[in-house]
Design a protein around this nucleic acid. Structure first.
Length: 444
DNA sequence: AGCACA
């Protein structure tokens, strides 16, 4: 089949069009510059920049054909050529009648940002640092990260497009502040566009994705990384090195706080792997290790400043430890590794539990309606595994509350009031027992 | 310096 169009590829005189084709533009000419150029002749209703192999061509579309004609004829007879940034720009009618702007999702403002982290060490930027950076502009609902051909990218979800826009405008092209990055990490620049997404789907809290609206989301085992991550609370304000290990100090310790009490209290938020208690500055402190930072964060937020016993007794002050993995050499009444079911338990002494009428825990701990009820038939230990286990216990599993409220033989410590249960507070009742076998944090 | 990747 020969004899097709004898038409030349380009006609050098185009029929008029509302759309003008510009070439010889400076590098990365902006839409604003194009509008500026066309504005004297009419209303520019659409533009397209960075066209052509060299990305130095563009189109501008006027509202009215006459406006396009006015611009062409003006520069046809002008002694001064059309210029952008002092560079001569060549104009002609486009061979199309309108700009078909493949307005990608990247161009239309939305509440989710697509963030590309540029730099040799981009992959080393943690999700917590990203959360910190973007939280400066508003509540960050969710973050997901992933590797694409474009490199290391993240989707950051805000409440609304306005918040997202403010973050985008402020951060696009900027580098993550050095002080937020580990020493050895090189500069990381953010390239930000809008994403087409409106609501990200985050199944697990992990090193790749976070849902800050749902702290009880299961924590994926992949989220466990030994390195102490720097992150921040949901309020986006404080900058504190988060850790999966909490340091709890106990103030106003009128009652003995035992390993098992601590285990019960802290198990309300997830599996406790290890606990180590020690005396410091005349007070009792304890390190509590969770499998992941996220759980520790939730526990810290929930427990900080609360009292183990009603009446202001045994007030907890909690901070993040620098530890990430406690070394428990021996299981005794001050330290325990709940991840080793058969570790030897050393009874160093007849145990303080045996000596005093010690207030202790009940079978279930409640906090904000969340119950976690380690019972004898349900060994406390949950290996750090995704989805299964403790998270499922969050929406309360009534059948796993083995003990009734009555039937406590409570003996108040001398000269004190019995701890009462305040609504919404942790519930504790006096013990009738000695140290339970290791691995089971409950007391009966 | 000559017309838009999906």
């Amino acid at each position: 089949m020969a004899s097709v169009s004898s038409q030349p590829q380009f006609r050098y005189t185009q029929p008029p069009s509302k759309v003008l084709h510009l070439r010889n533009l400076p590098w990365e000419c902006t839409e604003e510059e194009l509008i500026e150029l066309g504005k004297p002749f009419g209303k520019v209703v659409n533009t397209k920049c960075n066209v052509g192999a060299n990305r130095n061509q563009a189109f501008i579309e006027f509202a009215d054909l006459n406006q396009a004609i006015a611009m062409i004829s003006y520069y046809a007879s002008s002694s001064e050529p059309a210029q952008v940034r002092g560079k001569t720009v060549y104009l002609q009618y486009s061979n199309r009648q309108e700009i078909v702007n493949n307005k990608t999702a990247a161009d239309v403002a939305g509440n989710v940002l697509l963030v590309t982290i540029e730099g040799a060490d981009a992959r080393l930027v943690s999700i917590d640092v990203l959360h910190l950076v973007f939280s400066a502009f508003g509540f960050v609902h969710k973050i997901t990260t992933f590797e694409k051909t474009a490199g290391f990218q993240a989707l950051v979800q805000f409440s609304d497009a306005e918040t997202a826009t403010s973050a985008k405008d402020a951060l696009d092209g900027r580098s993550i502040p050095r002080y937020l990055l580990p020493e050895h990490v090189g500069p990381c620049t953010l390239r930000i566009t809008y994403s087409g997404h409106t609501d990200l789907s985050v199944k697990f809290q992990s090193h790749r994705s976070r849902d800050y609206t749902n702290p009880y989301l299961p924590v994926a085992s992949s989220a466990i990384d030994g390195s102490g991550q720097f992150g921040m609370g949901l309020d986006g304000k404080k900058l504190e090195p988060e850790s999966n290990v909490l340091l709890a100090s106990i103030e106003n310790m009128q009652y003995a706080v035992t390993l098992d009490v601590l285990h019960m209290v802290f198990s309300a938020f997830g599996p406790v792997q290890k606990i180590a208690m020690f005396d410091k500055n005349g007070g009792l402190q304890a390190l509590i290790q969770y499998p992941d930072v996220q759980t520790a964060v939730v526990a810290k937020e929930a427990l900080e400043g609360h009292c183990i016993y009603d009446g202001g007794f045994c007030k907890l002050h909690i901070s993040y430890s620098r530890h990430t993995d406690l070394s428990i050499k021996v299981n005794n009444d001050r330290s325990r590794d709940y991840t080793i079911p058969n570790a030897p338990v050393v009874e160093t002494q007849p145990s303080i539990l045996g000596q005093h009428p010690v207030p202790s825990v009940g079978q279930a701990v409640q906090y904000n309606g969340v119950q976690y009820s380690p019972g004898p038939e349900q060994p406390v230990m949950h290996q750090p595994q995704p989805q299964a286990g403790w998270a499922a216990a969050a929406p309360a599993a009534p059948q796993s509350m083995p003990m009734q409220m009555h039937n406590n033989h409570y003996m108040p410590p001398p000269g004190t009031m019995p701890p009462q249960m305040a609504p919404g507070m942790m519930q504790f009742r006096p013990p009738t027992s000695t140290i339970p076998p290791y691995g089971s944090g409950h007391i009966r």
